[in-house]
Amino acid sequence: MQRGAHAGIASSNNKLDFGEYGLQILDRGWLTANQIEAARVAATRHMQRRGQIWLRVFPDKPYSKKPLETRMGKGKGAPEGWVAVVRPGNMIIELSGCPETVAKEALARAASKLPFRCRFLARQHAAV
């Protein structure tokens, strides 16, 4: 399916702005609303409602789909759902208020709900 190339890397939303820990995406494409919600639920459950979570992407792009077994033509398909366009470097989720081990596991579970490679990031603290 030709749905655009999403060229380049993330020029904004590409660093930790809110939380202590974050999940950064390394591939490009579409994240559906269901995938984003599944990742949020997976991370929140593991954190057992401690700490704070920020979703850094929002599915604001509608996509359409033609019904199955339909011939080509006869106009554009009906809206099917909503997606967020992501590029390498985009932060997907940020966390704070929990120990690093908990954040790592929570974000690993969230990453397992996403169709792209992700990596864990932690804020670098200045030495005392």
Partner: peptide, 19 residues
Amino acid sequence: AAEGEEAAAPAADTKKSDA
């Protein structure tokens, strides 16, 4: 409420695979 979410999650997955 959390149990309700759990029940909703597999339903969402099914929808995704249908899509």
